[in-house]
Design a protein around this nucleic acid. Sequence first.
DNA 1: TCGAACTATTTCAAATTTCAATGATCTTCG
DNA 2: CGAAGATCATTGAAATTTGAAATAGTTCGA
Lengths: 169, 169
Amino acid sequence: MEKAKDDPVDLEIIVRDEPAGHKSELRLWLRLLSTVNMITQEIRQRLRAEFAITLPQFDLLAQLDRAREGLRMGDLSKRMMVSNGNVTGLIERLETDKLIVRDFDPVDRRVIVAKLTPLGIAKFRIYSKAHEGWLADMFADVDPVTAKALMKHMATMKGSVAAHLTRGA
Amino acid sequence: MEKAKDDPVDLEIIVRDEPAGHKSELRLWLRLLSTVNMITQEIRQRLRAEFAITLPQFDLLAQLDRAREGLRMGDLSKRMMVSNGNVTGLIERLETDKLIVRDFDPVDRRVIVAKLTPLGIAKFRIYSKAHEGWLADMFADVDPVTAKALMKHMATMKGSVAAHLTRGA
DNA sequence: TCGAACTATTTCAAATTTCAATGATCTTCG
DNA sequence: CGAAGATCATTGAAATTTGAAATAGTTCGA
């Protein structure tokens, strides 16, 4: 006796789980997102309260600190994962504050390279140390084993995501 | 023969690890952040391309979809982890599009409750299904064991962070 | 070498976002 | 009751952010 496609039980399951039961992925995503948001807001608030600097500006300084020879606007945009126009505005404000400078590339005159000034380096050193301390505080109850597992599993997840992007497949 | 504090090797380690060796926390944070950014940008782009809706608007609709009886502006603000003023602007645009409505609370006239319209419910249902599918795609290479471990470990991390916030301890 | 196709950056409009200040309403307590 | 203090939401200014269009410069093939 055949059953399959007309089995009422199967239909019931299908209806309840429309359309493909991806709830667990959604839950994982929401947990990831809310945790990151929580941390982000805490850092934003502390940067403002203690150093009167915004989080996006801190992020940009951090990129330049890691690349002392400077970065092109486009590279900054890619590394920060924000739009080109966004970087232009941030750079303008930081240049006004004398924390960075813009230099034209003599070889390719379309290219602009931004780098930290000595003042920018000095100030970021201070911000950066505090920032690391805040993270260590917030992660204090995460034991090393858990942290290590997270590093590994997040690498897996990041790889999966990167492999399934619409654009940069 | 005593050694300890004058041991050159120990000093070397200390110097290299100034000021308190929180590099591993920083690395974990950056990995978390970049992964979430990658996913966020992908979802933002797909929402725009396929449904002509912005990510913040989708997020707000999602909150209201989970609370069919409606939410106060302040609750929306807390759940979305954004400022009060931000929610006001988002709600105004969504109200213009007839996706949500605002009602005064008859008991407490300071309170405003936002809820989905039937149109909002119908449209969000479509957006939501697509959204879940995109997540499932992006997480396709994350095996269930890894996913389960991530759920658990992210709960630990979220708890640690929540316990060490400046504000809402 | 000319011009079409690319590439790097800026510009612009609209939306988002924060933070502080304001307005309106409630609550409490003398 | 009635004012001080607390709560809820909006407003306004400045910064951030996106996405598309515009600018300027480079490259490469006919």
